[in-house]
Amino acid sequence: MNNFKKYGFTFTLAVAFHLGILAMFGISYFSEPEIAEVKPLPEIIQATVLDDVTIMEEAKRLKDNKKNKEIAQQEKQKKLEDNRKKEEKLLNKAKEKRIKEEKQAEKLEKKRQENELKEKKLATERKERAIKEKERLEQIKKDKVKAKAKAKKQQEEKERLDKERKEKKQKAEKKRKADLAAEQKAEAVRKEAARQKQEADAKAKADQDRKATISYSDAIRRKVINHWIKPPLATKGMNCLISVTLLPSGDVMSATVTRGSGDSVFDRSAENAVRKASPLPVPEERELFNRTFRSFNFNFTPE
C-alpha cells in the first residue's frame, strides 16, 4: 500500500505535473495576445477552451481527480503492506529507496506545491493579468471605440463647426462683398450724379463763360476799332499780332508786337490803338478774367 501510495502519489504527481505543463502550455497558449482570439482553435485543445467558468471548473475537476486517486492509492497500499511484510527486506530496501524517493517526492512535492502555488499564483496573476489585460484591452477597445466615437463626434462637431464657421464666414464675406458692391454702386451712382452735376455745372459755366467771352471780346474789339487810326496805306493782307497783358481793371499793362507786318508805321498804329483803348472792358469775374483776358492777342489785319 505505501508503495502504491507512493507510486500513486508519484503517478498523480506526474500526471499533475504533465497536466500542469499542458495547462501551462494552454495558458501560455491562451495567454497569447488578443489576436489569437480570432484564430480558429486547434481541435486537441478543444476541451481546454477557456472562459472564466471553465477554467475554474477544470481546476476543481483536477483537484477532485487527485483526491480520488489518493484514496485508491491508500487502499492499494494496505494490500501492498501485507506483501511488503512478506518481503520485509525488500521492503526495507524499497523503504529506503522509497524514503529516498519519498524525500525526492517530498522535494518534488514541495517543489510541485511551490510550483503549483507559484503556478496558481502565476495562473491567478495571469488570469488577473489576462482579465486585467482583457479589461484593459476591452477598456482600450472601449476607449478606442469611445475615443473613436468621440473623435468622430469631435470630428463631426469640428466639421460641423467648420462648416458652420465656413458658411458663416462665406455668408459674412458674401454680405460684406454685397455690402461693398452696394456701397460701391451707391458711391458710383453718387459719383456719377456728382460728375453729371459737375459736368452740367461745368457746361453751364462754360456756356456762360463762352457767352461772356464773346460779349467782352466784342466790346474790346469795338473799343480798339474806335481807337485805331488805320494808316492810309494799310492794305489788305497786312497783319500785326500784338500780345497784351491786362490788369483786372482792364488797364493795359503791356502791349507788345509779337509778329510785325513789316511796316513799322502800321505796327505802331496798332500798338497805340491798344494802348489808347485802355482800360479795356473786361469781365469782373476773376476766374474768367484770369483764364481768358489777363493776356491775349490782337491781330490787326485790314479788310
Partner: peptide, 21 residues
C-alpha cells in the same frame, strides 16, 4: 465770330477796321 475759345488757345481778337483820322 472772330474769337478762339480760351480752352483751345490763347484768345486772339481780329481787328479789321479802324477809324480814318
Amino acid at each position: 465770330g472772330c474769337y478762339v475759345p480760351a480752352s483751345q488757345a490763347e484768345l486772339t481778337l481780329e481787328i479789321t477796321k479802324g477809324i480814318e483820322s
